[in-house]
Design a protein around this nucleic acid. Structure first.
Lengths: 340, 340
DNA sequence: TGGAAGCACTTTACCGGTTAAGTGTCAACT
DNA sequence: AGTTGACACTTAACCGGTAAAGTGCTTCCA
């Protein structure tokens, strides 16, 4: 089955390919009759433009790129990226823009990939995720002038447009919730320390705690359940254990909850737990975990729309998403009465 | 920063672009000196071929496609696809082939996407996952002659090449393991019924059970934790509850394990549990879940290599992966002594 | 010493689109 | 009646590669 070209259409319509191109693209210069006829033929023989031909001609690849450089072992346990991609797709599909999705070994490999994509004109722009403090990717992408949309953090994005959630407000909501329940020693198990949103949350967490006159402690995690278990154990075995723990993702929260239960803590009577990002996993354990909920699909859609705008030269500002929603479930409750 | 083309190289080398093209592609017809010089210049100015130009010229898109049509809600809770994609990428990267990854609403949308990719020459081939019984995609792809590699099932793939795991042997391994532990009533919570590998496992499960003279029961699930909870409850509340349950994925296994524990069953004293696919989640619960382990990354890599071969016209046969490995953890043990 | 062969290129054309510039025809206007 | 201009196209060129066919020079051999 040979794929039809505009030349085929031209032959059948008795026109030149230029006339056909005009007709197909709504350009003036062809009669309405002719345009109709051309469109009918195109429809009939199932013509669609050859992506490479068009790309070569107009210089646009009609593709965006998304690279994740976390180790494969850690990928996918979190639903975040799949939901994000699904949201992005929804917007891109209508515009006939494809998504090149890649998993890179590390940041060097990721940067090499951007250079390669740029040099080969494979993509018209990229989504940048998991922004780190002093992230080298930002400078590289700016230097390449590859349209970029940062997902997840306004800080550190430099001049690049971004979409993000208000981590600060979310942290405050959680801390206020816990303080209102009487908690005075609150801990937080962080995500990977180098990431901007981890830093934002940590700063906001310590601020909120001291602002409300309670003790806030951070233990370092890395999103894996191992780290969730370890951090939880350390916190609960410390001299002055917290009565509530906030985890930076759901995996750590669940492993933390189960660890605490194994250590004899009742939830929420002895310990309250809050998860960040509300995946189905949060309802897996008993009691179900109180969690910060956000619309990740919409987040992806917003990112996609903005990258499309940015790539077309429209100046786009940042977008702060609708606030996180604190979904209260069984894992948070009144602080235990002070011992002794 | 203008991107360099071979014409730029030609100008600097004092040659025509044809000579440059020959030099860059290792074609005969240029002296070694000239070739060196051209390669040096290319290196120096950071030239890489314009993907669209090359695609237009040689007719290859240098991209493969992968579509998943499960609802976004269910995606990503399972690490399977992320690991698969990471494995695929590893192979494709060296060959400078990109992966177009898309999440589709349903199978109709997926088929439309294939037609569109084909008509626009966006991809040179596609990976087909989650093969269903009477899958319409197989015929469409065969009709389009879009090189296709089926991942996960030889059955139902028609003439399309495939890579798959031996589900039959895996089922037998599990059932034999459980029977050896003394279990006589074994249940299985299935994945989505329409999928080929679900059917394969179900048939094999019932066969293995009757072959070993034990009772095998299947309860329908759909990979979600809700279905895991529901099926587990039904099974345990039935007149003759099983002493062991095998789940078709890890999410259902975990929710099943937790549900059983909440219903007062001790694991493995009262009930043994086996998970299909060994993600980190399996070690989340206590006792950790016995699980069927397989190398999903390698699976993806094999698929990628075979699709590359198929697309180049090499006749590729099917590949059965190394067998599943049953990782024994705390969730399986001797069957409880018969009551009464 | 003339012809053939081989080398190292160049010329030309093509892939399938888009687009600037050119052309023939007809109607309207002066 | 001749110019003008609009219309509906066509011609030609371009995007950046690849590749078949052609060219000029050297070398080798009979």
């Amino acid at each position: 089955m040979r794929r039809p070209t505009i030349t085929d259409i031209a032959r059948r319509a008795g026109l030149t390919k230029t006339a056909v191109s005009f007709a197909l693209n709504g350009q003036p210069g062809v009669s309405e009759d002719t345009r109709r006829r051309v469109l009918d033929i195109a429809q009939e023989i199932g013509w669609q433009p050859h992506s490479a031909a068009r790309a070569l001609s107009d210089g646009r690849a009609n593709a965006f790129g998304l690279v994740i450089d976390r180790p494969a072992r850690m990928l996918g346990v979190e639903p975040f990226f799949m939901q994000l991609i699904a949201g992005i797709q929804g917007e891109l599909a209508d515009a006939h823009i494809s998504l090149l999705f890649t998993v890179a070994q590390d940041q060097d490999a990721e940067i090499e990939l951007y250079r390669s994509w740029w040099a080969q004109r494979r993509v018209d722009g990229v989504f940048l995720v998991n922004l780190q403090v002093d992230d080298r990717r930002v400078d590289v992408l700016a230097e390449l002038r590859l349209p970029t949309l940062v997902i997840g953090s306004a800080e550190g994005a430099g001049d690049l447009p971004a979409v993000w959630f208000d981590e600060d407000a979310a942290v405050r909501t959680v801390v206020e919730h816990l303080v209102a329940l009487g908690h005075r020693r609150i801990a937080r198990v962080t995500g990977i320390p180098g990431l901007w949103h981890t830093k934002l949350r940590t700063d906001a967490f310590l601020d909120a705690a001291s602002g409300l006159g309670v003790t806030g402690v951070c233990a370092e995690g890395d999103y894996t359940q191992d780290s969730g278990v370890r951090a939880t154990r350390e916190l609960l075995e410390s001299a002055q254990p917290p009565t509530a723990i906030v985890y930076d993702n759901d995996i750590m929260a669940i492993s933390g909850a189960l660890t605490a239960q194994r250590m004899g803590r009742r939830l929420p009577a002895d310990l309250s737990i809050v998860a960040w990002d509300d995946s189905p996993l949060c309802e897996l354990v008993h009691p179900a975990l109180t969690a910060l909920h956000r619309d990740i699909g919409a987040h992806g859609a917003h990112a996609a729309r903005r990258l499309m705008d940015a790539e077309r030269g429209v100046t786009v500002g940042g977008l702060e998403e609708a606030p996180y929603l604190l979904v209260r479930r069984g894992s948070t409750g009144p602080a235990p009465a002070p011992a002794g």
